[in-house]
Design a protein around this nucleic acid. Structure first.
Lengths: 216, 216
DNA sequence: GGATAAGTGGTGGGGGGCTTCCGCTTGCCT
DNA sequence: AGGCAAGCGGAAGCCCCCCACCACTTATCC
């Protein structure tokens, strides 16, 4: 989806409009990373050096802007998952995914909210991406279990649990957040190991599609 | 601190004022638990059946109201800690504290923010309570390590880590939150065990007094 | 039971964010 | 080069929340 060819026909943007669009997206990414997803639209517009109306016309709803702003990062995530599935060692792939996603959350404050947010009618093709990601995760978990390194009672929803928990530490200032997040990931991965596993309470009903995305 | 005797001298509240004060606190507690600490003051006032002015006069700053509203729960926490210290089995005490605090967080949305919030000049005696709690935690960790069940590289700041991580899942709707929180606590406690411990990245600089309390 | 001061609720100014409208500017195509 | 529509920025209207003031009510004490 990135690098879409410069359309020439109807529906194409004028050059200055395209330019502004990019500036808005850049400003939004910066602002989201630094201050979270709740930054006022006016702040983004100011940062981008455009009027509010421009921003608002280009991205009619807040969700639309968020979606576009984080498209790249979501693609990175998808790539991460593909890498993990390509790894001959499923447990290593599993760990890498968890660790890297945790870092991404810690580094970018808005990432979690964008990731979890549902774009029910945003017109984007996220639904498809999400479904593919979920399938990939299920498969990764299945393989890691079959390999005997991931505990058998691990639920796929536990990955959402990781996401939410890590979102909590990601709310801290960035430097603290990355250190804390790394440590949390290490702790959790340790307890996901099959070796030495102890009984657990039942998993929480935390599908990736029905979590409440409250701004983070 | 609760059950302060009905003062009669100067500084005492009139009976109706005292009554309203209680209603405000009750309303605040409900609202905080249900919607988090950011509920508008007007909503609390309406819920309490009083005017905004009354609320605002009785609690000049938002922090003051929060402090009073959560005093009871903080006392419960302190009691939990005392119980744990009184337990002859320090590891069991440690686990109980972690589990119970996690439940409290999951059940009450505002709890975390209130707990982490710094009341730098609120005039309350929280500073003292906090200090005592920290000392108690340090001691509990020390004993659990000496007992050989808590891993030696466990840092006291890891308890803050638990708090933050659990705050992330506590942001979900309550029913989901309690289930998820329970599972998270189980996972984390498992990896806090000395048995089967694996190396960890260094602890994060997460003192209880320098965490950033961003509304949760 | 009445004087009195503490207590009360409604109301209005102030600020901030969201969204839309409108007259001007500017890239594009011929 | 010139016409035209797409694009632009600012400003206005709206809503919500914070906070302070003020005329009225009511518990308390003698």
């Amino acid at each position: 989806m990135p690098g879409e060819p410069y359309q020439k026909g109807a529906g194409a943007l004028r050059s200055d409009a395209r330019h502004n669009r990019e500036r808005i997206l850049a400003a939004a990414r910066e602002a989201y990373a630094a201050r979270g997803i709740d930054v006022p639209l006016t702040a983004i517009a100011r940062r981008a050096g455009v009027g509010v109306a421009t921003l608002y016309r280009r991205f009619p709803t807040r969700a639309a802007l968020v979606a576009e702003a984080f498209a790249e990062q979501l693609a990175v995530c998808a790539g991460l998952l593909d890498d993990a599935l390509a790894d001959p060692d499923p447990w290593r792939g599993f760990c890498t995914v968890v660790e890297k996603v945790c870092v991404m959350q810690a580094v970018d404050r808005g990432f979690t909210a964008a990731f979890l947010a549902q774009f029910p009618d945003g017109g984007t093709d996220y639904e498809q991406v999400r479904r593919r990601a979920e399938d990939g995760l299920v498969e990764l978990v299945r393989r890691a279990k079959a390999d005997g390194r991931l505990r058998a009672d691990f639920a796929v929803s536990d990955l959402t649990l990781v996401l939410l928990a890590n979102a909590g530490v990601a709310a801290e200032p960035q430097e603290v957040a990355v250190a804390a997040s790394r440590r949390l990931a290490a702790y959790l991965l340790q307890s996901f190991r099959a070796q030495g596993a102890r009984p657990l309470p039942p998993p929480a009903p935390l599908g990736l599609r029905n979590v409440h995305a409250g701004s983070r």
